[in-house]
Amino acid sequence: MKILIVEDEIELQNTIKDSLEKSDFIVETASDYSEGIEKTVSFEYDCILLDIMLPDGSGLKLLEELKAMKREEAVIIVSAKDSLDDKIDGLNLGADDYMTKPFHLAELTARVKAAIRRKNNHGVNFLSWKNLQLDPDNRTAKVDGKDIELNRKEFDLLYYFISNPNRVITKVSIAEYVWGDHTEDADSLDFIYSQIKNLRKKLQQFESDANIKSVYGIGYKFS
């Protein structure tokens, strides 16, 4: 799947590119408004990551152009500004999601996948890994067709993992994704461990081949 990053900060652009490529996306980049227009006119993408503040124009303007061209790409706005107005404007203009910098790469991957999944109405509306299958719309999970009982947090956790298979996901990123801003206190990140333990137990209980591996104590890897 092809992704276009429209972002003027080259370092950030590179990092996002590296990360998405690790998750098997094909990534192209544009560093300003005109390059963004040029690329979107010439090529088709599955998802476009759009920075609002570009040196020669606004990302919102680019979004308007895309919609005028009746393009079907999923668009995720990436902004340094956590502004409700921008968010509302962006979503009203047809953006699929809005992310505020700084974000975690794993979260970006999950959001990109979710945006693409929602856009593609191919009927295949679930995520799968090995013998595990997740239906994000109905929030259900199955192992070999058998339902696993998961609570809301456990489902979110599993969804986050299945969106980032074979990638190191940091504890901080898990905490922020699943529990929002509730985990400001880095000391209490240890509580993630007990949550992971519960999830692991359930996966084993239902004989899933999926495995959550601890990486150095930094985070976890889903494989």
């Binding site: 990092t15 974000f103 794993a106 990123s173 990486v215």
Partner: peptide, 28 residues
């Protein structure tokens, strides 16, 4: 926000590098 984004995302990428040792990973 942007430089913080770059730093933390670079570190996240670095953490995925399989060539780093445990002690380096800890420091990272």
């Amino acid at each position: 926000q942007t430089p913080l984004s770059i730093i933390s995302n670079k570190i996240e990428l670095l953490m995925e590098d399989e060539n780093i040792s445990f002690s380096i990973a800890e420091k990272i």
